[in-house]
Design a protein around this nucleic acid. Structure first.
Length: 412
RNA sequence: GGAGGGGUCGCAUAGUGGUCUAGUGCGGGCGCCUGCUAAGCGCUUUCCCUGGGUAACUGGGGACGAGGGUUCGAAUCCCUCCCCCUCCGCCA
């Protein structure tokens, strides 16, 4: 959520930012409601003050008191109504990109800022992971569909083992070498967590939801992690906070219907290790660079070639002020796979989730900045590991860092 | 799921219709005192909204788990919901 004062004082800056995102938002309506709200509050406060004075005179002022009560109730209802309308609109407005974010319409205008390694060239014709996986009997697509329908699959034997090895390896690396503390959060959360992290109200159609209990299934561990410190005031000494969490992630993928239906690239359920930070505002840009390096480190240790792309305004996520995507090369399906998206959300989520810190012992609380990034997303790293390490005989060499976790050097 | 008890300013507590403008203790901050430290003494210490002023500053309103209601007036009375504790039931 944006600061209403920012919109009030710099409406053109906000409108311009939204235009650069190729998005739209009713800024003029927000300004109108904001002005109306404040006019009403001035009136309401005056009436309440009068009530306070009059009630001290006890029985003498009962008639005026009754009239005041009616007036106050009417105005309160009006202000509540405007508050709700304003809130609804404010929650739909995206974050403002930072000045160094390239302006562009979609992912074709993202900018590659660096690369690592060379996209692998194999001396035989590489197979896509769905063929490799079926031949090795480590991915079972048919039975996944039998159980749960399209976009579901089953990992079995060494496939399941490989995924579990990756999860453990990621968590060990981030907790032991990068300074993150591990969290095991709920996979279902309350509505206000979804609002806090920026998923609701705008993206409801992509979220699984249990209507009976009003539980919402997380599409990323970013959601519970954002809300870990909801409605808290942290001390300056506690910051920065680094968290990582493994969770299953659930997405309806309504918006990408028909896209990437082959293989395990885009399912309704997938696994991910997420990195998350709460930091002081002035440090968040440096923290984004560090977080991105932490995610990259995983690719390097797995020996996977990748590129880092700075997202342009048109491709930037709703909550983000600046993001880097990490794409790894997959020679079998012949594409760059997005395995991480590292974002600085500024104070956008902190304002929604009301996460603040006190810069000095008796100072006024301020919103923290939050950052998130995958470290990394599993099915896609599985794809990359399988396709990059495949041999001419159809077996897969296990990367050295994973061998102790997998308990084998080759999957065959 | 059932019965009972409870949710007050970081923590602990007081407060059962108007003197609560939410008290007290602990903790935190500033200062005094002091070979040093501790103790002691004094002052201070919740958050949000909003008005006036370039500003320092200053006026007003709201919040006692959440939301409604009763009343001239609600932390206090009533209703609904949430959470915690104890016991029972069920369960990995």
């Amino acid at each position: 959520m944006l600061d209403i004062k920012l919109i009030r004082e710099n409406p053109d800056l906000v409108k311009n930012a939204i235009e650069n995102r190729h998005d739209s938002a009713p800024i003029d309506e927000v300004l109108r409601l904001d002005a109306e709200r404040r006019r009403n509050i001035v009136k309401l406060d005056a009436l309440r003050q009068e009530r306070k004075v009059i009630s001290k005179e006890r029985e003498k002022a009962q008639e005026r008191g009754r009239a005041l009560r009616t007036e106050i109730q009417t105005l309160e209802e009006e202000v509540n109504k405007i508050d709700r309308q304003l809130e609804e609109l404010l929650l739909q407005i995206p974050n403002i990109p930072q000045p160094d974010v390239p302006i562009g319409k979609d992912d074709s205008e993202n900018v590659t800022v660096r690369t690592w390694g060379e996209p692998k060239k194999l001396d035989f014709s590489p197979l896509p992971h769905w063929t490799l996986g079926e031949n090795l009997k480590i991915i079972d697509f048919e039975r996944g569909v039998k159980l749960s329908g399209s976009r579901f699959y089953i990992l079995k034997g060494m496939g399941a083992r490989l995924q579990r090895a990756l999860i453990t390896f990621f968590l060990d690396l981030h907790t032991r070498e990068h300074g993150y503390s591990e969290i095991y959060p709920p996979y279902m959360v309350k509505r206000e967590c979804m609002v806090g992290a920026g998923q609701l109200p705008k993206f409801a159609e992509n979220i699984y939801h249990d209507a009976e209990e009003d539980y919402w299934f997380v599409g990323t561990a970013e959601i519970p992690l954002t809300n870990l410190h909801r409605d808290e005031i942290l001390t300056a000494e506690e910051l920065p906070l680094y968290y990582c969490a493994y969770t299953a992630c659930f997405r309806r993928e309504k918006m990408s219907a028909g896209k990437d239906t082959r293989g395990i690239k885009r399912g309704h359920q997938f696994d991910k290790v997420e990195l998350y930070k709460f930091v002081m505002p002035e440090t968040s840009n440096d923290e984004l660079e560090k977080l991105t390096r932490d995610a990259e480190d995983v690719c390097q240790k797995l020996g996977l070639a990748y590129r880092i792309r700075k997202l342009c305004t048109g491709d930037l996520g709703f909550t983000s002020i600046k993001s880097y995507d990490i794409d790894v090369w997959a020679p079998g399906c012949g594409e760059w796979l997005e395995v991480s998206s590292c974002s600085n959300c500024g104070d956008f989520q902190a304002r929604r989730a009301n996460v603040r810190y006190r810069p000095e012992p008796n100072a006024k609380p301020q919103f923290v900045h939050t950052l998130n990034g995958s470290g990394l997303a599993l099915p896609r790293i599985m794809i990359a590991v399988m396709e990059n390490n495949q041999q001419a005989d159809g077996s897969i060499n296990v990367p050295e860092v994973l061998q102790s976790y997998v308990g084998a050097k080759v999957i065959k």
